[in-house]
C-alpha cells in the first residue's frame, strides 16, 4: 500500500513537472524586452547597477512590501510569547570568542562595503543586512551576545526604522502624483538613504528571527 501510494505520488509529481515544462515551452516570447528598457532608463535611476535600479527605483513598490513582510514575520514571532530570562551563556571555547571578536570589525566593514557597492555593482541593502545579521548570530553562538527577550525601545526603533524611512520617502514623493517616482536629481541620495536604513533594520530583523527564537528556547 505504502509503495503504491509512493509511486502514485511520484507519477503525479512527474506529470505535473512535464505539464509545466510543456506550458513554459509554449509561452509566447515576451512582448516587452525588459533588460533593454532598464538599460535605456538607467541614466535617470540614480544608480549605475541595473539590479539595484530595478529593486529600489523601477520596482521600489515591491521592495517596500518585501520589507513589510519580513517585519510582519518578526512581529508574528514576537506575539508567540516573550522569552524567559536568557540562560547564562554556556562555557564556550575561548578560541571561538577570540575569533568572533576579531571577525566582528571585518563583518561590519563588509556590510558597509556591500551597502555602498550596491550603487554600481552587485551588493545592496539585503546582502549587507544579511551579513550584519550573520555577525550578530556569530556573536551569540560565541557566547558574547545574550539571546534577546522582549525588545526595548531602541531595538524596536531599529527594527522598524528602515521600513519607516522607506515609507516616509514614498509618502513625501506621493505629492508628485506617483508612488516612489524619484526626481532624477535626488534619486541617488534617496536610494542611499533608504538602503542605509534598510541595512540596519534588515540586519536586526534577520538577527531577531534567530536571537528571539534562541531566547524562547532558553
Amino acid at each position: 500500500m505504502n509503495g503504491l501510494l509512493r509511486s502514485a505520488v511520484v507519477i503525479v509529481g512527474l506529470s505535473l513537472a512535464a505539464a509545466m515544462v510543456i506550458a513554459l515551452l509554449q509561452l509566447p516570447s515576451a512582448a516587452v524586452h525588459l533588460p533593454a528598457l532598464v538599460a535605456e532608463n538607467l541614466a535617470q535611476s540614480g544608480v549605475e547597477h541595473p539590479v539595484t535600479a530595478v529593486l529600489l527605483n523601477f520596482r521600489g513598490w515591491d521592495t517596500l512590501l518585501e520589507v513589510a513582510v519580513l517585519l510582519l514575520a518578526l512581529l508574528t514571532l514576537l506575539t508567540l510569547g516573550g522569552g524567559k530570562a536568557p540562560a547564562p551563556a554556556a562555557a564556550v571555547d575561548p578560541l571561538l570568542q577570540g575569533l568572533a571578536r576579531r571577525m566582528l570589525p571585518l563583518i561590519v566593514l563588509t556590510a558597509g562595503y556591500l551597502l555602498w557597492a550596491g550603487a554600481h555593482r552587485p551588493g545592496g541593502a539585503f546582502q549587507a543586512g544579511a551579513v550584519l545579521a550573520a555577525g550578530a548570530v556569530f556573536l551569540q553562538l560565541a557566547g558574547l551576545l545574550p539571546a534577546w527577550t522582549a525588545p526595548r525601545r531602541w531595538l524596536r526603533l531599529g527594527l522598524v526604522l528602515g521600513f519607516l524611512v522607506f515609507l516616509a520617502v514614498a509618502a513625501a514623493l506621493l505629492g508628485q502624483g506617483a508612488l516612489l517616482r524619484y526626481p532624477p536629481a535626488l534619486a541617488g541620495g534617496l536610494i542611499l538613504l533608504i538602503e542605509a536604513g534598510l541595512t540596519l533594520s534588515l540586519g536586526l530583523i534577520l538577527a531577531g528571527l534567530f536571537l528571539f527564537l534562541t531566547g524562547r528556547d532558553a
Binding site: 551588493g123 544579511a130 545579521a133 534577520l206
Partner: peptide
Amino acid sequence: APDIALAEAAIGAGLTGALLLDALGALQA
C-alpha cells in the same frame, strides 16, 4: 547573477542553516 548568489549564500545557506540547526538543538533538548 552575482546579486542572487550573494543573497543565496548569506540568507539561503547561512541564516536558514543557522535557524535549522537552532531548531534541531531545541528539538533534541
